[in-house]
Design a protein around this nucleic acid. Structure first.
Lengths: 149, 149
DNA sequence: ATAAAACATAGCATTTTTATAGGAAATGAG
DNA sequence: CTCATTTCCTATAAAAATGCTATGTTTTAT
């Protein structure tokens, strides 16, 4: 399924912040994330407004300000990040034939739509930002080291 | 997550056809489905064009014509129905930061996007149209019978 | 004071969704 | 053979969502 730009940018940004999490104790500016990932800074602002509302990042205004992760990467799941920024992914499916055929409506809701939502949430809940950082790191060192082994 | 009108209509229509599957050996007209479910017939035509392309229904043109399920309900899954009509649900998520940060890109793809697609497909694969018919029937008789038990 | 940064809001172009309209082609019934 | 019925095909259009830009305003360290 297609994850929107907002969702993808949010995940990439949070993973990128997590990569420098232990080193950098201070905050990270949007412009640095923007440059590192090649994403428009203006658009990232909107994404971070949602991440902040979802309590995934905290912010410090003014010069030398920036953003920080609100929690350590191992306590943040992909589900939470996407939930904070993705609108339609977590919208409930509307009624369809509720008037004329309420039994079909109810059966579809229970056995298909609700089951699907459950499966999606379950799958995303299990992926932590820490895992993604490790996964990315593994690939990087694999690329770098492969020739010398 | 939000399933589009096309997907919902397709599921409702296929379940509705399956309900009369053993009785009616002949074909079912779009207009009868349209009236039974309260869905625009003109729009249903477009949905059925996709269902036919996906080989879920067969059609007979002309007077006394109509549509039939291509297979018995127990051999049709919700996954197949949605796959035939839903475009974005089965679109692959595009690249995001592939240029600047290929490791993050690859990690996200593998651990989030591909894992999500797998979970969605797995969940939808398990739901058959037969199950939905039985589920709807159970609700119906529960409503009707409850007072007399 | 000033520059750096978050924060807020408005607007716009493109694409997708959800339909409607009108007719063409096929076919069974009388 | 003709006609009503029904699938099939294509075009159009309104509404919504998406992705992004623009322009400021506030806050704060230096």
């Amino acid at each position: 399924m297609r994850i929107s730009a907002k969702g993808r940018y949010a995940l990439a940004a949070v993973v990128s912040m997590a990569q420098q999490h232990p080193q950098n104790d201070g905050s990270i500016t949007l412009i640095s994330i923007s440059e590192r990932l090649g994403i428009s800074k203006i658009y990232l602002e909107q994404v971070f407004a949602l991440l902040k509302r979802g309590e995934l990042v905290t912010s410090v205004k003014g010069a030398q300000g920036g953003y920080q992760l609100a929690r350590p990467p191992r306590l943040i799941s992909a589900l939470e990040v996407l939930y904070a920024v993705e609108t339609t992914l977590f919208d409930k499916t509307e009624d369809t034939v509720a008037e004329r055929s309420p039994e079909i409506e109810t059966a579809l809701r229970a056995d298909v739509f609700d089951a699907l939502d459950l499966a999606v949430a379950e799958a995303l809940k299990q992926v932590t930002i820490e895992q993604l950082v490790l996964s990315a790191e593994r690939r990087k060192s694999a690329n770098a080291g492969m020739f010398y082994i």
